[in-house]
Design a binder for these strands. Structure first.
Length: 598
RNA sequence: GGCCCCGUGGUGUAGUGGCCUAACACGCCUCCCUGUCAAGGAGGAGAUCGGCAGUUCGAAUCUGCUCGGGGUCGCCA
């Protein structure tokens, strides 16, 4: 070993000990004779002192040392001079007086400094990740990620799970996201696909009798990137046999509560987790992943608003749309500029516009609102009575600003949901140290796809309809709900699960509703359907994004911050320069002709 | 594919038509300095302003195209 002690370890109790440390030169302070080096390894910083009177050779070596050189130093731990302790360092009461030192490696001047508050641009950080990750903040995020996966292994092992690896080279079943594809050398013209998730394989494992499976699985999707989306992401994939919806939820809840409480003991964790049916989540929050750290709950006022003279409301109500609202407390004094900003938020979320009603705080009560208390662009088209009814429905008080969006269900909910988040931020209703988990369960099995004018699976084709709804599958698919559930936290979807269909006949009915032709069913799912005919146990499970929960635990909104080597928004790896062209003979061997215009 | 923001020494920024022979901070180099810890002092090097084309007597600055980064909508069963 090049060291017998970590840099972050020495304390006052170690004074007098002879130790050997090794690490990176974090900073060097040269006083001409005395030279101080802050030596850094993964555990922290130690002040290392080179004194020419104590060790002249080591001192002259230290004169040449520069940032990020790798050095080794031997010497004695001693107390710092009185008044010279550094309370900002864990090792600040002591220092190493060097008797012997070696340069293990030199370093170019780093492109940016290794410090937590880096001001380097993210692309610079990514292209120099070997420097970036030396920053304690980044290193601790990787360590956090490790702790999370370790807890997953422990917890699931304790609960009878078996970790099984599934193949990365699988069959392409085009649907949903675009596949990443790998050519076959041995079978000219044929391609593997990388898994978008191990979905079919884990269900197969249930038929195999594994009963409780998990995997920290890499999943690949060739779709456009976002702050919370990479082309490859890591998912905690798990599946259980002989369970109902609540069993899976209970197990995952235990795991996630443990992860949060052990990695973020400072955080406020609400247990048991909130449970909302899908319908309730939409009604109260306009979203299937509501941030439940704050209220600002919504209400539907279609019928009340339709009674007004306002043509927008009448038109929307008359065409089967919905009119919804919520009340922003204390915002009645919003200026034109502020309400315009809210209108922009609504428009960005797809709404035509936004109607607001400001109820002046001088009103004694909602019942006693008078004309002079009301400020609204549609004031001339709404009677005081209607305003009272709307305000009552929205649970508004004098001084509040009622925000109203009319449109289709989807548009009204999207816009109001965006406004709800906006208002929570403006009103500072969000506690950043709170982890407010919420289960959303009983999703609809299908959703109507306007574009293709057909029913599509709301999540995926294997989710089981609720037993009592199976009768409607063919006659009224929109009425069928499923044992399908999402885990959300602070308005972010962390994972999604369901009880799966284990009856081949029900599965075929679902395929029929979606409109898959027989040959396609056979091609894509034949292997799984075949297995199901040999005694598939009832089963269900979840897939949970590891990047997102880790980012959340690290207090980051961008998952790149918890990924060692992430890709840019154009799916480029600036560190290793992937993807890149390959040699012609490599292409030949793979029977591939590249067709690129330049 | 749409929309928005950004691109100037190694790093982060300032400069929005001539005062730019491009400024500042950090970093880097040389010298001085025995207690600093974002050490200090003195001096110095380092950028044709992402690229191309155009407008102009004159472009970091205006216009067009393009490349790259970020955010977001579409997309992500």
């Amino acid at each position: 070993m090049y060291k017998d002690t970590d840099c972050g370890a020495p304390r006052a109790s170690d004074i007098g000990k002879e130790i050997m440390v090794a690490g990176w030169v974090h900073r060097r302070r040269d006083h001409g004779n005395l030279i101080f080096v802050d030596l850094r390894d993964r555990t922290g910083l130690l002040q290392v002192v080179f004194n020419p009177e104590v060790a002249p050779e080591a001192h002259s070596l230290a004169e040449g040392m520069r940032s990020e050189w790798v050095i080794q130093a031997t010497g004695k731990i001693r107390a710092r001079l009185p008044g010279a302790a550094n309370p900002n360092l864990d090792t600040g009461e002591v220092e190493l007086i060097v008797s012997d030192s070696q340069v293990l490696n030199r370093s170019l001047t780093p492109p940016f400094e290794v410090e937590d508050d880096t001001d380097a641009d993210e692309s610079t950080r990514m292209a120099n990740r070997f420097i970036d990750i030396r920053r304690p903040e980044m290193l601790s995020r990787l360590q956090l990620r490790h702790r999370v996966t370790h807890l997953i292994w422990d917890h699931l092992t304790d609960n009878g799970f078996t970790q099984v690896e599934t193949p990365i080279l699988i069959k392409s079943t085009p649907e949903g996201a675009r596949d990443y594809v790998v050519p076959s050398r041995v079978r000219p013209g044929a391609f593997y696909a990388l898994p978008q998730s191990p979905q079919q394989m884990k269900q197969m494992l249930m038929v195999c009798g594994v009963e409780r499976y998990f995997q920290i699985a890499r999943c690949f999707r060739d779709e456009d990137l976002r702050a919370d989306r990479q082309p490859e992401h890591t998912q905690l994939d798990l599946e259980m046999s002989f369970v109902h919806q609540g069993d899976v939820m209970g197990l995952v809840e235990g795991l996630y509560a443990r992860i949060v409480s052990e990695t973020r003991p400072d955080a406020k964790l609400g247990t048991p987790f909130t449970k909302l049916s899908y319908d309730e989540a939409i009604e109260r929050y306009g979203s299937d992943k509501p941030d439940t750290r704050f209220g600002l709950e919504m209400c539907t006022i279609t019928e009340i608003a339709a009674k007004s003279e306002a043509r927008v409301f009448q038109a929307v109500a008359g065409s089967g749309g919905t009119i919804r609202a919520f009340s922003a407390p204390g915002c009645a004094d919003y200026t034109r500029r502020q309400t315009d900003q809210l209108i922009d938020v609504a428009r960005a979320a797809g709404a035509q516009g936004l109607v607001y009603i400001a109820i002046d705080k001088s009103a004694a009560a909602i019942d006693e609102i008078e004309d002079g208390h009301i400020r609204s662009p549609l004031k001339n088209y709404m009677s005081v009575e209607i305003v009272k009814e709307i305000a009552t429905a929205a649970d508004a008080s004098p001084g509040d600003l009622v925000l109203i969006v009319a449109g289709t269900q989807a548009i009204a909910n999207n816009a109001l949901s965006a406004l709800r988040t906006e208002m929570a931020e403006r009103l500072e209703l969000i506690d950043p140290d709170e982890f407010k988990f919420a289960w959303v369960y009983d999703f609809p099995l299908f959703e109507w796809d306007e574009e293709s004018q057909s029913w599509a699976p709301a999540h995926h084709v294997f989710s089981a309809p609720k037993q009592e709804h199976i009768q409607y599958i063919e006659s009224d698919p929109g009425r069928v709900y499923a044992d399908l559930f999402d885990l959300t936290c602070n308005g972010v979807e962390l994972g999604s699960g369901s009880i799966r269909i284990h009856d081949p006949e029900v599965q075929m009915k679902v395929f029929n509703v979606i409109g898959y032709p027989d040959h396609e069913i056979e091609d894509r799912f034949g292997h799984l359907l075949k297995a199901f005919r040999y005694g598939a146990p009832p089963h269900g499970g979840m897939g949970l994004g590891l990047d997102r929960i880790t980012a959340m635990l690290a207090g980051q909104s961008n998952i790149r911050e918890v990924i060692a080597f992430p890709k840019t928004q154009s799916a480029w790896d600036p560190l290793f320069d992937a993807p890149s062209a390959i040699a012609d003979d490599q292409l030949d061997e793979l029977h591939i002709a590249v067709n690129v215009e330049d």
